[in-house]
Write a protein that binds this DNA or RNA. Structure first.
Length: 467
RNA sequence: CGGGGAGUGGCGCAGUCUGGUAGCGCACCCGGCUGGGGGCCGGGCGGUCGCAGGUUCAAAUCCUGUCUCCCCGACCA
């Protein structure tokens, strides 16, 4: 009995259903905005914690900058304004009167950071300066979708300044692999393709953009995080300079990088199945749910003991003893919410000294002795991550077709990813792909690694439909 | 902005063609039975049918106007 619509025929509907039924989020009062509910936010908090640890390990410090940006700031970098102006929300009135200069609600903060990087950086000794902020931004989207593209969203944006182009490039790559790729694969169990954006897909104002692209279960691509080399564009526009060892005044090289609550959407669409969400254990708000079949002193005691034993090893455990709610309903609800491991304790089994352990990545439910329950549950939590990653990796592998020309790419990308020699595509081919509802998600080397530059020889284009 | 569709209890819908004073499922509340996969029986709360005007003895239903929302496309983390 599938709880949700079949995802193969109606993926968007299935996606919205999971979000609603698992009580993750709902639409906000303003079109395109989102209310994140406790379960969805708890998932996000775990993602955020893993991300924040890695950001700090990479040497960046957290700060907070203002929500409102004077319009003039944004205008200082020409390409940047042009890229963002259609989607800006602008405050023109405050304190009961019209403002002299309109205020932009930040769509991203390169421009304010630029202003302050310029003030804070005097000497080469101040570099590299590596800052990060957790904040909400607003981009007036024409076509919103919960978690994937909302007009207001929550994210992390890093902004750094370096003495050399190489230093900036190396740091961009460090963030890309040690923060983004690491969180996506090791925490969220989402395998990603990594590479460079084409000139057409690049961030407005960047000289180079690195991306992590995931494949969703319907074969469409989702951009999950980007890191930008900004060259000296913003340094020039905001006068971010320093005095070098030899006394000369130099322009900085800056970077920016971001990832958002979109990752929650990526988790849903990568791992979800017809029974609902399947959460990677590292971000599951509840990692083990211990369900009491019905009330009985022995059952309750066994459940509480198991909870304590598991909690002692650092697992997030909860006991569901709401026996006024039918068992079937409770089991279904935890499945919908994606809890990785479920232990069922009931009087019949318990009389024989056993309990049941079910893993959310498969349908099997195994019977184990009460004495082994804690070990079995703990092992199950660990193996759910690997199983989800393995399943998603296989989907990505089998969903990617190697092709030699544009027509074959267009054909293959109707149901998955196409890997095409960039020489057979180029900017003109890219326009044709766009006309067919496709895009070049990234450019990679033959081995699949991130190329040194987007105009290197022997590159491959990953072509797909995208969210 | 172009193309479709919808506004009726908290949610999802029927009723509109053919006018007669609002109904179903879910949820919620009460009582009981049940209890190893969304269980059963009984009782109950809750809606001036998006808004404004018109026709009529009578409007959710017909007419005019208006507002809003959703879906597909174009913009995008």
């Amino acid at each position: 009995m599938p709880v949700l619509a079949p995802q193969t025929t109606d993926f968007p509907g299935w996606y919205q259903d999971v979000i609603a039924k698992a009580e993750l989020a709902e639409t906000g009062p303003v079109r395109g905005t989102m209310v994140i509910r406790p379960w969805g936010y708890a998932i996000w908090e775990h993602i955020q914690a893993h991300m924040d640890d890695r950001i700090k390990a990479a040497g960046a410090q957290n700060v907070y900058f203002p929500l409102l940006i004077p319009e003039g700031h944004l205008r200082r970098e020409a390409e940047h304004v042009e890229g963002f102006s259609p989607e800006l929300a602008v405050v023109t009135k405050a304190g009961g009167r019209d403002l002299q200069e309109p205020l932009i609600i930040r769509p991203t903060s390169e421009t304010v950071f630029g202003e302050y990087l310029a003030r804070w950086i005097q000497s080469y000794r101040d570099l590299p300066l590596r800052l990060n902020q957790w904040a909400n931004v607003v981009r007036w989207e024409l076509r919103p979708r919960l978690f994937l593209r909302t007009s207001e969203f929550l994210w992390q944006e890093g902004h750094t300044a370096h003495t050399t182009e190489d230093g900036a490039a190396a740091y961009t790559r460090q963030i890309h692999s040690d923060v983004y790729r690491s969180v996506l694969e090791d925490v969220l169990a989402i395998p990603v393709l990594t590479g460079l954006k084409t000139a057409a897909e690049r961030f407005a104002g960047a000289t180079s953009t690195l991306t992590c692209e995931g494949m969703m279960r319907d074969g469409k691509a989702l951009q999950l995080a980007t890191s930008h080399e900004l060259g000296q564009n913003f340094a020039r526009a905001f006068d971010i300079t320093y005095t070098d060892e030899d006394g000369s005044v130099q322009l900085c090289w800056t970077t920016s990088w971001g990832s958002s609550t979109r990752m929650v959407g990526g988790v849903i669409m990568t791992h979800g199945d017809d029974a609902g969400l399947r959460l990677p254990p590292k971000v599951a708000p509840v990692q083990v749910i211990v369900v009491i079949v019905n009330h009985d002193p022995d059952v309750t005691a066994a459940a509480e003991n198991l909870k304590l034993e598991l909690a002692r090893t650092g697992l997030r455990v909860r006991v569901d003893d709401r026996t006024d709610v039918g068992l079937g309903r409770r089991l279904t609800a935890w499945e919908l919410k994606g809890v990785p491991v479920r232990v069922e304790i009931g009087p019949r089994e318990l009389a024989q000294g056993t309990v049941s352990v079910a893993r959310r990545d498969g349908t099997d439910r195994e019977t184990v002795s009460l004495a082994d329950a804690a070990t079995a549950a703990r092992d199950a939590v660990q193996s759910v991550h690997d199983a989800l990653f393995a399943q998603a990796t296989e989907a990505l592998r089998s969903g990617t077709a190697d092709v030699e020309d544009l027509d074959a790419a267009i054909e293959a990308a109707s149901s998955g990813f196409a890997r095409l020699p960039w020489a057979a595509c180029g900017p003109e081919g890219e326009r044709r792909l766009n006309g067919a509802g496709l895009s070049v998600r990234c450019l990679t080397t033959a081995e699949g690694s991130v190329p040194a530059t987007a105009d290197a020889d022997d590159l491959y284009a990953i072509v797909a439909r995208a969210y």
